[in-house]
């Protein structure tokens, strides 16, 4: 919902802390994901993720979440799907050129990022979207990547 989405970016620090608490749990549950199988865990976890992040951020389930680098404002809500910052068409009142009654996702992102501890994560140059990941769970991928990193260090 639009108003909750705005609330989220305006409470980016709180949500950053929340995610920092949740992420280790998801990673710790790695044995569970492994025993269930990532493919089988995918559907229920993706549904849960969509329910939480859909409510808070109007999450589009791109499957490669960068909310931590976008001030907790989902960049996939930008009509141009920009992942690296605002386009040049932002209106003087900070609204979107495509949806003039909506705040620019990146104006919110900038303000959100400045409230976060890791405020300079917004400077990271993001890769283009991998469209194959649409609809998949970012949380499970984080867990899997952390496990793979641990494996490779062994």
């Amino acid at each position: 919902m639009y108003s909750i989405r705005l609330w989220a970016a305006r409470h980016a620090r709180l949500l950053e802390l929340t995610y920092q608490a949740v992420e280790p749990v998801i990673i710790k549950l790695q044995p569970l994901w492994k025993s269930v199988g990532y493919a089988r865990a995918e559907k229920p976890v993706a549904r849960l993720e969509q329910a939480c992040k859909g409510l808070l951020f109007d999450c589009q389930m791109c499957g490669q979440c960068i909310l931590s680098s976008t001030g907790m404002s989902c960049s996939m809500n930008c009509p141009k799907h920009l992942r690296n910052g605002p386009c040049g068409g932002v209106m003087q009142n900070g609204n979107c050129e495509v949806e003039p009654d909506t705040r620019c996702v990146w104006v919110e992102a900038w303000e959100g990022s400045q409230r976060m501890k890791d405020s300079d994560a917004i400077q990271i140059v993001q890769l283009p979207v991998d469209h194959r990941l649409q609809g998949s769970s970012s949380w499970l991928r984080v867990a899997r990547q952390a496990a793979e990193r641990r494996e490779s260090l062994k």
């Binding site: 009509p79 141009k80 799907h81 920009l82 992942r83 690296n84 910052g85 386009c87 040049g88 068409g89 050129e97 495509v98 140059v125 993001q126 890769l127 283009p128 979207v129 469209h131």
Partner: peptide, 24 residues
Amino acid sequence: LTGDGVQVGDHPEAKPVFDLDSLS
């Protein structure tokens, strides 16, 4: 360039692609 949104042009019904952004 990122490019203007299709809504300002003469084909507002067109599909906006935006597979990349100007940075990528």
